[in-house]
């Protein structure tokens, strides 16, 4: 199946404990576009990203994919297939860094060039010297880089990153930005939730703010 060029989410709403969290939001993710989403703590950024990636069920949402409209439930398989959500504190599976990367690779059915491809990504993320280390013992910044490498191997055309630089020092932030630039140049759509939008100035195409349950573009 060809990868979609864009995904449009219409009238996306979600309540939590009977209080509205997100109300009738319309948002489009487009290949090659880098977007930043800001908002206060508890404004619904994480929930929005999880809905957009098929992980959390919304109260209402219509998806437009391949120029066709679907309900969120019907589009869920496509969302899981074509999007990737990266947690603020990414989960590292037990085992080595290398094993964590192998768990990512099945999405596009790679097999013969698997090992070679992992080595390339390890080098690109400057993780090659850590490949046999236990992923759970790495620092927060290193784990974020492993998660980004895992995302890159996954080849999802739409990435949704939740505070990807929160645990990183300046050096790690620069490496992560280089990595994201590379992904963007390959045509990946990236939407980043952050409290520090200035970090992403050089990559930014679109700046979004979530406020009072709705999204404004600035």
């Amino acid at each position: 199946m060809t990868k979609p060029q864009k995904i449009t989410y219409s009238l996306l709403s979600k309540s939590w404990n009977r209080k509205p969290l997100i109300e009738s939001v319309n948002i489009t993710a487009t290949r090659g576009q880098f977007s930043v989403l800001c908002g206060e703590n508890g404004s619904g950024k994480t929930t929005l990203l999880k809905i957009m990636t098929g992980l959390v069920r919304p109260d209402h949402c219509q998806i437009t994919l391949y120029e066709k409209k679907f309900s969120w439930t019907r589009a869920r398989t496509h969302l899981i297939q074509h999007t990737l959500y990266l947690h603020q504190t990414p989960y590292m599976f037990s085992g080595s860094v290398y094993r964590n990367l192998t768990l990512s690779i099945n999405k596009n059915g790679r097999s013969t060039t698997q090992g070679k491809h992992i080595e390339e990504v390890l080098e690109m993320a400057e993780l090659d010297h850590l490949k046999h280390e236990s992923a759970k013992t790495l620092s927060g910044g290193q784990q974020q880089r492993v998660a980004l490498a895992r995302a890159s191997l996954n080849e999802s055309p739409f990435l949704f990153l939740d505070e990807p630089t929160a645990n990183m020092d300046t050096d790690s932030v620069n490496r992560a930005l280089d990595f994201m630039r590379e992904l963007k140049q390959r045509g990946t759509s990236i939407l980043v939730c952050t409290h520090s939008p200035e970090i992403f100035e050089g990559l930014l195409d679109r700046f979004l703010v979530i406020e009072n349950h709705i999204i404004h573009e600035q």
């Binding site: 999880k50 990636t53 098929g54 992980l55 899981i80 297939q81 999007t83 990737l84 959500y85 990266l86 947690h87 504190t89 990414p90 989960y91 599976f93 037990s94 768990l103 990512s104 099945n106 999405k107 895992r150 996954n154 999802s156």
Partner: peptide, 25 residues
């Protein structure tokens, strides 16, 4: 925690494969 399941699913694992990943953890 919930991240194990969510990470396995968002990496494209089917529900059964994601369940096996959680079992391994």
């Amino acid at each position: 925690d919930q991240r194990v399941w969510e990470t396995a699913r968002t990496l494209g694992k089917s529900p059964i494969a994601a369940f096996l990943v959680v079992v391994n953890e």
